[in-house]
Design a protein around this nucleic acid. Sequence first.
DNA 1: GTCTATAGTAAGATAGAC
DNA 2: GTCTATCTTACTATAGAC
Lengths: 215, 215
Amino acid sequence: MERTYIDLASNPIASPTKIKILEAAIELFSKRGFSGASVRDITNEVGIKESSLYKHFKNKDEILETIFAFFRKEADKILPPMEHLDFIAEKMNLVEFLERGMQNFKRHLDDEINQKIWRIMYIELFRHPMAKDIYRNGIVKRTVDCLEVVFAKMIERGKMVTRDPKRLAIEYQYPLYPIIVEYNLLMSEGKSTEEIDAQVIEHIRYFADQCGVTS
Amino acid sequence: MERTYIDLASNPIASPTKIKILEAAIELFSKRGFSGASVRDITNEVGIKESSLYKHFKNKDEILETIFAFFRKEADKILPPMEHLDFIAEKMNLVEFLERGMQNFKRHLDDEINQKIWRIMYIELFRHPMAKDIYRNGIVKRTVDCLEVVFAKMIERGKMVTRDPKRLAIEYQYPLYPIIVEYNLLMSEGKSTEEIDAQVIEHIRYFADQCGVTS
DNA sequence: GTCTATAGTAAGATAGAC
DNA sequence: GTCTATCTTACTATAGAC
């Protein structure tokens, strides 16, 4: 998996050591939280001395911020660009659209690094402004907005029931959040997530049915 | 607000100092997480020396465990006892039942201490076995089970649409979780939560409507 | 059950040689 | 950009007097 981390000025990170530090930090923060994992733990994992870390990051906080900056970019990739929504509403039916969206999201969440950062997000949600902002605006709000636009266009085209598209967007999307939490919990325990896939399929079917679409 | 904390052997805690320690810990853990708040921070808040704390708790971990033990008991109070469900399904209609349930839950969540412990729960969810267990079994599973039973009985009585009651229970309950997260976020920021109440009302109305009940 | 005192470890971070 | 060495502070926890 080739990945492009970025620094706080949005420039790609080339240094292999800096990347190793980031990935060790992601691993440790996701298991013990930011304050539960020390700079010493991180550098031990990487195989450098503590003092060397400070050539790459000005302090411990900057590591976390860099992780969140990367994750914001990753979260952006989950949804299709706004310019495509017209095309999507034109060419796809409701169930195709929802299933495609889930596939996209699963691809995002099957990445081990993203998964770990999700866990860091939960841990830091109430404390760190970037975690809060990414969750609220980068994920929840953006997704609702995207769904709302597509649903509105589909309603126009008679592809689904006539109802407030924003309400539909919320009712479709919100149930997925506790499912994602459970998915992350199962993954962190190394357990099977088959049950989750079934849940998602049932939810899509239920929703489509409510919308006058028989899949 | 009179509250009964319990120790790890389930005995009520009488010592005022021990209670002060718990409440200071709840405050600090909810803001900084378990590993982000030190024993020193807690005792400073209480007004005792660090060494005195160890007369009340054998170590720092035991404080967190005691908090979770209390919360498990609090979570039990959110739902009506299983023996009442027959009566409920008999006497109430769907919307009454859901609204009553939300009032109950709001009463739980309007308690400042419970709110803070919810935040601790999120922070420790991936790390602490008790947090995991309370979330999964004490909250999510228990609520789904309760809803499923009541929905099944209401379907029997023709009070709502004939559908898999478990699916209905999930579709009703799951959307509430991200709403609870947002409620907790807003409260922790000292912001207004009116928007949340409106969300919940709209969700209940939407759900009832899907179930062939016009409220 | 509180205190003072202290042990022993671990934390984040810097100086300066190479 | 890595190292050794070090600083300073903070951490959990215990011993023992009152």
